[in-house]
Simulated scan of single mutants.
Amino acid sequence: MRYIELFSGIGGFRKAAELITDDTGLNMNCIAFSEIDKYAIKTYESNYNLNGEIRINNIVDFAAEKDKVEQLGEFDLLLGGFPCQAFSLLGKQLGLEDERGRILFSIHELLAAKNPQFVVLENVRNILKHDNGDTLSKILDFFKSHGYQYVNYVLLDTQNFGLPQKRARVFFVCSKKKLDIDLSQDSIINNFRKIKKHSLNIYKDVLDILDKRADSKYYLSERIKHTILADGSKNFKSKSQIDLNVARTLTATMVKMHRACQDNYYSDDFILRHHSHKDTAKEILFTAPVRKLTPWEALKLQGFDMQFYENAIASKVSEHQLYKQAGNALSVNTGYALLHYLFVHLKIQDK
């Protein structure tokens, strides 16, 4: 099965597809990828064996040149994490001057020219409610207008697939064939649990993720703790907690160290002695050792392995960029679970 990966980031979908190839014998072969962030590309290049596949880079510029699109070659499956802004413009004509509209137009060009059998795209869950559901309707109509007979979506949470992180994402699944399948989270979870042999990293909770020792630079100073641990401010109220067994959703801006109602922080008591300070009075924690996640731990929470991290570091990708990349990434295990369900368990390509 030949595929392209759009808006690839550090290749969450690609890593999932490669593991499925290794584990099941279903040959998933990447022929092209697109990404514009130079640091993400650096991490991508350091971790995947790029066997001559086309580097699309800026998909808007690429799709604007018909010769390039024609040279792309045929592929069966389009994978990607879609920029949600583009979909708010679906009710208007394609080819808008707006950057987001031009991104959508480029997808339109690829679908029209290459006519892939399947499309699997990931996005934030809020897109389901955006504009009172009108955006969702326009997304579904967009793919139907390109001849997809089956157009559906499912909400999947990373914590159900062996990674202790709350990360709910919506996945759109489109097929040129009419399919009669159960695309539900429960069915995908049940299939995932029945997989006897796989190469994924599976963790019971964050204690399986957190390293016993971390450099002092990751620890919070007593001064910054007053901000990090605060339950909001005058105009913003929240409940800050540390030492959560299942991590909060990683964000691309975690390097900025948001409050403990948004980011993940852990005490030495929790890491070393399994004593949680989740509900401990903040004043006590002002002097207790508390730290943020390391970049390696953030990548682990997304399903990437030590070799992946070491390859990126060896390529001189900064920790700042690794935090951003981990926060933007598709969880490998979640991508694997969905692709396995569709193409290994249901074998929709053979229906």
Rank of each mutant, 00 (worst) to 15 (best):
A281K: 15
V246F: 09
D305W: 06
A337Y: 03
P289E: 09
Q71W: 00
H108S: 12
I107L: 15
F33C: 10
E35N: 12
L293D: 06
K144F: 02
N51K: 15
S8Y: 08
N57T: 05
T43P: 09
V154E: 06
T249L: 10
R169P: 03
A247L: 05
M257F: 12
L110F: 14
P83R: 10
A17I: 01
T135E: 08
T280W: 06
L6I: 10
A230E: 14
N47H: 03
N235I: 10
K237A: 13
S199W: 02
N47D: 03
R102Q: 14
H258I: 00
I228M: 08
Q71D: 15
A247V: 04
P164T: 11
V124P: 04
S106F: 04
G80P: 07
F270G: 06
S187L: 02
A112S: 14
E109C: 10
Y150K: 09
F62H: 07
F75H: 03
E222N: 14
L155Q: 06
K204H: 11
L220I: 05
A16Q: 02
A252G: 11
C261L: 01
L104P: 00
E65G: 00
N333E: 09
D157A: 11
T251K: 12
F192G: 06
Y218H: 12
V317D: 09
A314C: 07
R167W: 09
L155I: 04
Q302H: 09
L121N: 00
D269L: 11
G95T: 04
F142N: 03
A298T: 13
A17F: 04
K38N: 12
F87R: 06
L293T: 02
L330F: 10
V151N: 11
I284V: 12
F33K: 01
L78Q: 04
L72Y: 11
G95N: 12
G91C: 01
K196G: 09
K300F: 02
R291D: 07
G162C: 01
N51I: 09
A298I: 04
L136N: 01
G12K: 11
R167S: 06
Y48A: 10
L183D: 03
S106M: 04
N245M: 12
D98P: 05
D182K: 13
K256P: 00
L104V: 08
I31P: 03
F236L: 13
S137A: 08
K256C: 07
D76P: 04
Y148N: 03
Y323G: 08
F304Y: 14
S137H: 08
R223H: 10
L330A: 08
H277N: 15
L78N: 05
L121P: 01
L96H: 06
L155F: 00
S318H: 06
L200M: 09
K68E: 12
E283K: 14
G162V: 05
L272T: 01
I59G: 01
D22T: 05
K256R: 15
H275L: 11
F171Q: 02
D215S: 13
R14Y: 07
Q71S: 15
D231E: 06
L301V: 07
A40I: 06
D279H: 13
L285Y: 08
N47V: 08
D182Y: 03
V255M: 09
C174N: 02
C30A: 15
E45C: 11
M306Q: 15
